[in-house]
Simulated assay, not measured.
Amino acid sequence: MKALLRDDGNWGVRDEAFCLAVRSYSGDIAQLLLQHGADPSRRGPDELLPLREAVESGSPALVEALLHNTILGRRPKSELQEMRDLARHWHETGVETELRRRTGSQDPVACTRVQDDEYYSIDEFTLGGTTVRDGHGAILTDLEELLGARTSFEELMDRALAHTCQDHTAWARATIQLAGRRDQATWTAAAALRTNPDPSHRLFGAEVLRLTHLFDDRDEDPFAGPALDIFIDWSAEETDPAVLTEVLVALGEHIDPRTEAALLPYAGHPDARVRRAVAQGFSDWSSPPAFSGDARTALLALMADPDAVVRKTACRTVAEARDHNPVFADAMAALLDDADRLVQLAAVYGLALHNDERCVEAARLLGPPQRGSLEEDSYLDAVWRYEWRRDGR
C-alpha cells in the first residue's frame, strides 16, 4: 500500500479508498491513506462507517480516522459524549464478557495480537462469528480529550496497566496524554512510581517522565535538568530489564557528559533490549570532537553483538556521529558480509556518510531497495549522495 501510494498520482482514488478502508474496519489502512492526502470531508456521511460501529469494533485507529479534523465538525458534542459512554462500557465490562453477553456463546474465545496502526498493537477477540479489538480504553481516552475532560493520572495509569505490553495502544494513549500536560503535578506523580515494587508501575512512570521532557519544546525546558538527574540515579539501581531499557533510552535523549558514564556499565548487559538502548544512547555531541575512548570501545563491541538489532543500532550511531575515526569505517566494512540485510544496509549507509568508497560496490551487490521499504530507501540514498559529492556535482 505504501509503495502504491508513492507511485500513484490519482488523488481522488485516495478518498474512495479511505471509505473502503473504514467500512472494512481497516483502521491502519485508513490512517495510511490520511497520511498520504485522503480527504474524508469529500465523502458524504452515508458513505462512511457509523462512528458507533467503529467504537464497538475496539480499534482506536479506526475511530481516530473517523474523528479526523476534516470531518470532526460534523460530530455534535452529544454524539461524542454518547460514544465516550459506549467506550467506557466496553472498557469497564471487558471485551470477552461483553462478547459472551451479546453472542450467548460459551465457546472458547480466540485471541490474537494484531497491529492496529503504524506504531501500536492490540488484542483481537473472536467469539460466535464476532470479532472485536480491546482498544476501548484508548478510544475512551481519545474521546475524553476531545471533550476537554482532564482524566486523573491514576485512571489513565489503570487503563494502561490493564494491558501487559508497553506497545498496546491504550498504554501509548495514556502516557502521551499525561506527558503532554507538562505540569508539576503529573511529573511528581510519575516520579513517585520510581520506588513502586511493581515493575509495570515503574515502567509507566519512567515513560511518562521521558516523554514529558521529550515533548517539551519550550525554550526554557524546565524538565530537562530534573529528568537527567532522576534517570542517572534510577539507572544505577534499576534491576528490571524492561524498565532499565526505558531509563537508558531516556538518558540517551540528553546531550550531557554524564550520559555516557551512566550508559557504559550496561554495554555488556545480558538483555539485548538494554544493549540496544546503550548503542542508541551514545553521542559524540556530549564529548566533542569525538567519542571518548571508552565509548569507542563499547561501540565497536556492540557492532559485533550477537543480536542483529544491536549491531544495526550501533552502526547507525557510529554512522551519524562526527567521529570519523578510520577504526569505525573498518568496523562498518566488516558488517558488509553480515547475515542480516538491514545490518548490511546500515553499514553501507555509514560508509557513505563517512565518505568511504567501499559503500558504492557494497550497495551494487545488495541491489535495489525492497519495494515499499522507506528504511532501505534512506540507507541507499546516502550512497547516491556520496557519489554526488565525490564527483563534484
Rank of each mutant, 00 (worst) to 15 (best):
V55H: 08
V55Y: 09
V55S: 04
V55R: 05
V55M: 09
V55L: 10
E56Y: 07
E56D: 13
E56Q: 12
E56M: 05
E56A: 12
S57A: 15
S57T: 09
S57H: 13
S57Y: 07
S57W: 08
G58D: 03
G58K: 05
G58L: 03
G58S: 10
S59L: 05
S59A: 13
S59R: 08
S59T: 07
S59N: 15
S59M: 06
P60D: 07
P60T: 04
P60F: 02
P60M: 01
A61Q: 02
A61P: 03
L62R: 00
L62T: 02
L62K: 00
L62W: 01
V63F: 07
E64S: 15
E64F: 02
E64A: 15
A65W: 02
A65Q: 01
A65K: 00
A65H: 11
L66S: 09
L66T: 10
L66K: 10
L66P: 12
L67H: 02
H68L: 06
N69W: 05
N69M: 13
N69E: 12
N69Y: 11
N69D: 15
T70E: 04
T70Q: 08
T70H: 08
T70W: 00
T70D: 05
I71L: 07
I71A: 08
L72K: 11
L72E: 11
L72C: 12
G73I: 00
G73Y: 01
G73N: 09
R74Y: 00
R74A: 05
R74G: 07
R74N: 13
R75W: 01
R75C: 05
R75N: 06
R75Q: 14
P76F: 02
P76K: 14
K77D: 11
K77L: 11
S78K: 15
S78V: 14
S78D: 14
S78Q: 15
E79M: 09
E79G: 04
L80P: 06
L80T: 06
L80V: 11
L80S: 08
Q81L: 13
Q81E: 13
E82P: 00
E82A: 15
M83P: 03
M83V: 08
M83F: 07
R84P: 00
D85C: 06
L86S: 10
L86R: 11
L86D: 04
A87D: 01
A87E: 05
A87T: 06
A87M: 09
R88L: 15
R88D: 03
R88K: 09
H89T: 14
H89W: 14
H89N: 08
H89Y: 14
W90N: 01
W90H: 03
W90M: 02
W90S: 01
H91Q: 13
H91P: 02
H91M: 06
E92S: 11
E92K: 08
E92C: 07
E92A: 12
T93P: 12
T93S: 13
T93E: 09
